[in-house]
Structures are given as C-alpha cells and as structure tokens.
Amino acid sequence: MKSVLATVLLISSCMVFSQEFNQEVTLENGKTFLLGKVNLDGFDSDPYKIWYQQGHKSYTVDETLIKLIRKSLKGHQIKLFLGTWCGDSKREVPRIIKILETANFPMKNLEIVALDRREGLVKTSPGGEEKGLNIIKVPTLILLKNGKEVNRIVESPIESLEEDMVQIILGKPYTPNYATLSKTE
C-alpha cells in the first residue's frame, strides 16, 4: 500500500511541476501568443510560422563567424526569453535559431521561454523562469557557462548577432543594450 501511495504522489508531483510546451493564450480581441516553455515546434503553427519561417529563411548567417561560434559555444547553455507578440522577437528569434542550427549548437542546451503581455503579468511566465534574471526587454538571449551567466544580448545586437555572440563567448568586453536599466524602471 505504501508503494502505491508513493507512486501516486510521485506521479502527481511530476504533473504539477512539469510544464507543457507551446501553451497558447487567446486575448479578448482574438489575438494569440505563446506562453511559457517553447520548443521549435511551437514556431511551426499559425500564426507564428508566418513570421518565424520567413525570418529564418531570409536571414543570411555570417559563415566566417559561425566557425568561431561553433568552436567556442561548446559547454555553454542558452536561455532565450521572447514575446511572440513583440516585433523585436519576431525579427531576432528566427535569426538566433538559424545561427544556432548552423553552428550545430545542441538544442537540448537551449531553453526558450515565451513571456506574457497581459496587464499585471507583463514579462512573466507560468513557470517563473524569468525570476531573478532582470528581463526588461525581449528578446533577451542569456549565454551561460557552468550554470552562470556569461553575458546577454538584449532586444537587438550591438553589431550583429554573430559578432555579439563571438564577443561574449570569447570573453571580450561587451555591454548589452539597456545594461543600466533595472526592472523597476
């Protein structure tokens, strides 16, 4: 009996703490957005695939810098916060994914989180993945090594996505956009 109870409790707790991917919220005006953890399949459904596929297909990756990125990104993890309702995210996220794919980055080391836009919930997620990370603009790409933040690209790159990524992963001085803002501003 104890083992049955333990099994039921284990399954229940897993269901409570697991979050499904690609949850969608529909606003009163009928517009939708993704919320919470997202996998690449989330960008293959309407209305997201329209901007995602077009942005992915049209972006030309800097092949010279990809070689450096491919070599230097080993051992890194990436957290990508976005809003599928945000123009900057619609522009940059397909490009970021294309760069990572071209660099053969292991996608298991990429965590994508779509944030809310509703009043009182702006830039939050159901799982709280953004907590303590000072996400003030989206998209925000955070590069981590051994679980610690190395640096981030906020909203848009300073030079180019590839150049900014190289600066960060090679440990060169890099100051992201909005570095002086706090979440309360």
Rank of each mutant, 00 (worst) to 15 (best):
P94S: 00
R152Y: 00
Q19N: 14
V61L: 02
Q54Y: 02
I169Y: 00
I96C: 09
K137T: 05
K37T: 09
D46F: 15
F105G: 06
D116G: 09
N177T: 04
I99Y: 05
F17W: 10
A6T: 12
G55F: 03
L121P: 09
A114L: 04
I135M: 08
G42Q: 04
E149V: 12
K172H: 09
L40E: 14
L5G: 05
P47T: 05
E185A: 08
W85Y: 05
L82H: 07
H76Q: 13
A103T: 05
I11N: 01
E20G: 07
Q19W: 13
T102V: 10
K2T: 11
D88K: 10
M165K: 03
K37S: 11
F81V: 03
K74G: 14
I69D: 10
M107C: 08
E149S: 06
G120D: 07
L34T: 08
T7S: 04
D164V: 02
K79T: 12
N39P: 11
E92N: 03
L27W: 03
N29K: 02
H76A: 08
Q167H: 11
Q53L: 09
V138N: 01
K98W: 01
V4D: 07
S89G: 09
E119A: 15
K90N: 06
R117C: 11
S72E: 15
G127H: 02
E101W: 05
N39Y: 01
A103R: 10
